[in-house]
């Protein structure tokens, strides 16, 4: 009898704790996900704040809506899509990658590529000019023979002076 009572009591305790762990983190998870999603959605009244940061009444209603969708089991993307369908791309804090935002996303890369091409060409022409300079720095065959002759004359003259 005592054992029965104890086992009943323990099962009661376990079921209560299970019930608590089943609901408590769930509410936290909803709150956390609501906050995460809200941070990626623009407050359409204040424009440069997310609905998470904004105190505007509409932003607060939108947060409530996000929470409702999360509880209803929508994925983060589904919640965003829901509001995007009604407010357009503008409601997303981070612009989506699509035709009219191509330049926005690829612009910086284009700049870097253009600079790299310009730089590579510049380096190549510089090399070419340097090579040409190098080539022109030496003496031609004709100049070389004249120089040897002149030097030979000079030594002859010097010898003559000695004697």
């Amino acid at each position: 009898m005592k054992y029965l009572f104890l086992s009943l009591l323990s099962s009661l305790v376990i079921s209560i704790s299970v019930a608590q762990t089943a609901t408590a983190p769930d509410a936290n998870a909803v709150e956390e996900r609501t906050a995460t999603i809200s941070k990626t959605l623009r407050c359409v009244v204040c424009q440069n704040q997310s609905i998470h940061d904004s105190n505007a009444p509409l932003a607060s209603d939108m947060r409530t809506l996000v929470e409702k969708r999360v509880i209803a089991g929508d994925s983060d993307d589904e919640v965003r899509a829901y509001l995007r369908e009604r407010y357009g791309d503008f409601v997303l804090m981070s612009p989506p990658f699509q035709i009219n935002t191509l330049l926005l996303w690829l612009g910086p890369a284009l700049f870097v590529a253009a600079f790299a091409i310009w730089f590579a060409r510049r380096v190549r022409t510089n090399h070419k000019i340097a090579a040409e300079n190098e080539a022109s720095r030496g003496l031609s065959e004709d100049e070389r023979s004249r120089l040897t002759a002149a030097l030979a004359d000079l030594t002859d003259i010097n010898k003559g002076n000695d004697t």
Binding site: V45, L58, D61, L65, R86, Y87, G88
Partner: peptide, 13 residues
């Protein structure tokens, strides 16, 4: 009161 239809309509102000 809670922007239910307003959000459905994409109302901003």
């Amino acid at each position: 009161t809670n922007s239910d239809l307003a959000i459905e309509l994409g109302v901003t102000g």
